[in-house]
């Protein structure tokens, strides 16, 4: 049973921003929020439904860059033909976020703001060098995804701020692979390896094992030492494994990602 709350359903972004605060939380798919409310982790007096705000539901290309509204659902991204053509690695990730029910309901903004350490999307976006825009009734700011997530379930977002868009700069010029080890609804290890254009640098992100993804930049795949990357991680011990096991998995999946990148991307 959910605790009592009031529901606001603005259709303009500015109306939503005027409402959001400590006790009045943004609500879209509810996949994390409603669960937290059922478990009494959160007890807001009011939810602000974002699903009626057209500005948050858009996926658009600005030149080579991809801009995704905060309320866009995983299922929409997974089915987006232009994303599949121009940034296939995002399609690969979105097609396997959680399960089909999570993808139907859950939004990219909710996923990032909840800052679940095992977010596939956050790991890929870190490798893509993405940033997010936070808006409030007094202004907005853009922050690199790697600076946005501070730790498990913790971001720099103020209670009055809303994640309005995700920006993947030069998305059309990037290509990458994403591999994960997963036996339940969330990955134990996720590894994203992205190339910045034909002769660009490679960015490796290892997520899910620790509180936040680690990101490494190299100029060639040969520079990636899987064992050294595994040593850099600070795994959370939980039901899916201990530190040694997770570091072992990191090394295995980094090696596989390097091999896949070499084969699939002709590196």
């Amino acid at each position: 049973m959910l605790p009592p709350f009031a529901l606001e359903r603005p259709d303009r972004l500015e109306d939503a921003l005027a409402l959001i605060g400590d006790d009045c939380l943004p609500y879209c798919g509810g996949t994390e929020l409603l669960m937290a409310m059922k478990l009494n982790v959160l007890r807001p007096s009011c939810l602000v439904d974002l699903k009626g705000i057209a500005a948050l539901a858009r996926v658009e290309w600005r030149g080579d860059s991809l801009v995704i509204g905060g309320a866009v659902r995983h299922a929409s991204l997974a089915a987006d033909a232009e994303i599949s053509r121009s940034l296939a690695v995002l399609t690969v990730v979105e097609q396997r976020v959680g399960n089909a029910r999570v993808r139907t309901q859950g939004s990219i903004g909710g996923n990032l703001c909840f800052a679940e350490p095992r977010s596939d999307v956050a790991t890929l976006l870190a490798a893509l060098g993405a940033s997010i825009t936070l808006a409030s009734s007094t202004g907005q700011r853009r922050i690199a995804i790697t600076d946005f997530v501070l730790g498990a379930y913790e971001t720099v977002r103020e209670p009055t701020e809303l994640l309005v868009e995700v920006l993947v700069p030069s998305a059309r010029l990037k290509s990458g692979v994403y591999l994960k080890h997963q036996y339940a609804e969330r990955p134990t290890v996720g590894v994203a390896l992205v190339r910045e254009g034909e002769n660009g640098v490679w960015r490796l992100a290892v997520g899910a094992v620790g509180d936040v993804p680690i990101v490494i930049e190299v100029s060639s795949l040969d520079e990636i030492d899987a064992e050294a990357v595994a040593d850099m991680t600070d795994p959370i011990e939980d039901i899916s494994g201990g530190v040694d096991y997770k570091q072992h998995l990191v090394a295995v999946y980094v090696r596989r990602a390097v091999q896949a990148a070499a084969e699939d991307l002709g590196a």
């Binding site: 529901l7 509810g30 996949t31 669960m35």
Partner: peptide, 27 residues
């Protein structure tokens, strides 16, 4: 489970699967 882990409550909304235990009826 009542926290959308188990899938027992799955129904379709406009043809798409959702966990009805963590989906507001008003939606």
């Amino acid at each position: 489970c009542d926290v959308q882990i188990c899938g027992a409550c799955t129904v379709l909304v406009d043809g798409q699967p959702v966990s009805s235990c963590t989906h507001l009826a008003v939606d």
